[in-house]
Design a protein around this nucleic acid. Structure first.
Lengths: 204, 204
DNA sequence: TGCTCCTGATTGACCCGTCAATCGGTTTTC
DNA sequence: GAAAACCGATTGACGGGTCAATCAGGAGCA
């Protein structure tokens, strides 16, 4: 799965090309409604080549998901390590997710719609990786509680679900609208979230 | 669509039987993975009869969704009308949703997984109804702001997304776990939510 | 009561389009 | 020259939806 072989001389990396094309069509039509031939066409590549690089249509999506999700997990771990306030740590997590959307809205659309929220198909497959993210956020909340920064009477896992759920719902609206989101909105969204949730978590 | 004809003498309402069976199999296998024959088998009814009562497999799901969602919309409107605090109004909305899950977890699973979160298929189809719920919640937030009960520097639509997103994410976890949820957990979940979000919305 | 007719519910075999995946071949590259 | 990359026609499973045939019970009639 990690052969990703050093590409020959000037040849374009067809594999990458296929992955990128897949993002485009998955985002446009949804995973289920895209035929493998759509991916190949979009990539300007022969049908069979998709199967040369991937075992199945599923594997293409898996690869796209893991590629990005591993970055998120790394970002959360990174946030944990800093010595910022716990509020800021949560802000960093939210920031990374919003940033991912800004960086490539279509990829995030695919990940959210086809994996993260797809409880019957890929969501189940990748449950472990997905939950690892929730757990990371929950750890930050728990630490914040121990430090007296957050109120202690709320289950950290509950809090992390609410936090993550709120983020995803905001993104989902942008996804549905399929509208260009101004840069300022990203900052705004992140601040809103951290403000609302973290203020709600503050000790009374 | 509303013929639902006076059923002959002692005959069971086959139509209802089919809908109930559909909930069972959709919840178990997911909409996409269930064949129409699965529904018929589960209902103990012939394949063709499903098409006698419904135009398509899609219509079966639509019916299930609308049946429940219209109750939610009514509940939100109801909450708006009371003269409770706005915090309590939001609590009532969250309460109704959690209550729906308690009442029939499988139906809520189907609605959330196959409609509400299915941005590519039924989510798009029912976008209008879904958004009507968000809008109702946003109205409550806006009213609360006007009454000075909530801070005014947060877009009510943002707040409603965060609120609804948090609820759905909590439910999603229960759905994934597929585990019996103790009654006490429902109360706890509702209180947590209202506490976290509403405290976060309080004026500072 | 017994018979026929009629209506609409019910049945399930079958048609038919749709893809995912395979495979045998050709071209490129080293 | 051989291995890897590339091509796209072909296959075969699969499942939604159709429809002609059957069945059951009520109405009309004598």
């Amino acid at each position: 799965m990690e052969q990703r072989a050093a590409q020959r001389s000037g040849a374009v990396d067809k594999r990458r090309q296929i992955l990128d094309a897949a993002v485009t069509v998955f985002a446009r039509q949804g995973f289920h409604a895209t035929r493998v031939s759509d991916i190949a066409d979009e990539a300007g590549v022969a049908y069979g080549l998709v199967y040369h690089y991937f075992n199945s249509k599923d594997q293409v999506l898996n690869e796209l998901f893991l590629e990005r999700w591993s970055l998120l997990l790394a970002a959360i771990e990174e946030a944990e390590k800093t010595d910022a306030s716990h509020r800021d740590k949560l802000g960093a997590c939210a920031g990374f997710i919003f940033e991912s959307y800004r960086h490539d809205p279509r990829l995030m659309k695919v990940i959210i719609v086809e994996v993260t929220r797809a409880a019957n198909s890929f969501g189940r497959t990748h449950l472990e990786e997905i939950r690892r993210a929730y757990a990371g956020i929950a750890r930050i909340v728990a630490d914040g509680q121990e430090a007296g920064e957050f109120r202690a009477d709320i289950d950290p896992r509950f809090a992390s679900q609410a936090f993550y759920g709120a983020i995803e719902q905001l993104l989902t609206e942008w996804i549905f609208d399929d509208v260009e989101v101004a840069d300022a909105r990203f900052e705004e969204a992140r601040n809103l979230l951290v403000t609302t949730i973290c203020d709600g978590l503050e000790p009374r």
